[in-house]
Write a protein that binds this DNA or RNA. Sequence first.
RNA 1: GCGCAGGUGGCAGAGUGGUCAAUUGCACCUGACUGUAAAUCAGGCGCCCUACGGGCUACGGGGGUUCAAAUCCCUCCCUGCGCACCA
Length: 408
Amino acid sequence: MIWKKNTSIDTDKEKIEEAISRSIDTIYPSRDALRELLLSGKQISVYVGIDPTADYVHLGHSTNYLILERLHKLGHKIIVLVGDFTAMIGDPSDKTSARIPLTEKDVQKNLTSFKQQIGKILDFKNKQNPIEFRFNSEWLAKLSLKKIIELSSNFTVQHMLERDMFEKRMQEKKPLFVHEFFYPLLQGYDSVALAVDMEIGGTDQTFNMLAGRTLVKRYLNRDKFVMTTTLLENPVTGEKLMSKSLGTGIGLNESAENMFGKIMALADEGIEQMFTDCTRLSRIQIAEKKDRLMAGENPKNLKIELAHEIVGMYHGVQAADRAQKNFQEVFSAGGVPENILTISADSTKLLGDVFVDEGSVSSKTQWRRLVEEGAVVNIETKEKILDPFTRAHHGTYRIGKKTFIRIE
RNA sequence: GCGCAGGUGGCAGAGUGGUCAAUUGCACCUGACUGUAAAUCAGGCGCCCUACGGGCUACGGGGGUUCAAAUCCCUCCCUGCGCACCA
């Protein structure tokens, strides 16, 4: 890969500071060293790895891309590495991650969706300094057993076992498979193959990224920087905030209305972190928000601004305006959303069957429960549905708090 | 290879012949309260049946014993621990 050496590198102090101080947990070897490198005017290459087994990108991931965006704007080289080969092993950091061989088609499909979502943050159209996409199967699939053995010889079993996840599983006497040791090894080798200057990832990736640092030092005799970013968590319970398995994630491709609503449902305590990690507001602007909170302003206002800001990033300002208006009308004032699912049915059918067939209700038993709980209301007549065998008359229905369906 | 202990619902983890569709915690759903906050409280949480009742499918896979099995027996698969191996 050849790129122009004279790509202009921005060494603006404040911009650099913004890029290396925000949403960051730790920088290895040190923040000072990184600052110095960025101030030197040299172009560095930075990569972030993505998992091609799913096309789910949520607000927690956006943190990394916002940092990459800042670095990209400073003129640095950005590489997105698609872990199509490592996906076959499954990252031990996340025990739910799939260990399935993906077809090329799956990968391409997920990648297209990924680009579409991340494209709202990163500028994939920049021609002067294009963002590069690489696949680690390119080099990992070709590794010989000889090379693999050699790679393994860079780490001791004790070193591997130091990893939190492994240590914990040892202690809990849970299975720990040999092939799982290869994950950090192979991810580490990615850094060598790409010959990058820095890798960015969540704190859960620390071990894997540091393995890369070790290998880069051995094979390329260079210092690879590792930047770990903070994970969004519930400040009260410490629970991961954006968890697929816990169902708390806010996906980047969700509708403006859903996204707005989910952000409003987050705990107040997380407002500041959300502004820092998920928006482009400057540190100064965020400090102002914080001051208002401290001064006793209703957190709801700040949260609305947060939701508006974030929805605006992914759906545009107009959609954010609409989502806000919609939110205030529907939930604050008890109205009905503008765009609701409309299905046609006639009264020869039972209302419950219509909803189950449509998918809003998971089963007839569940439907019966919902009716018994008083969760189903015909909004037009303001009447609760009390009989599970009510026929599907025309009208607008609300099931629970969030589901609205109109029958024509 | 040998021995011992295990494999239960989305996860964790009880239950060791009928009262088990399976205690409990987390997650989830609904209601109350609210700012659709969060926290809290109450209820629910396999599926089907116009149901204070009935049926079907489920406790790693397969087979068996029994009127009756998640629970007992056989077998296969998987995991942990210990021994052996490490000259």
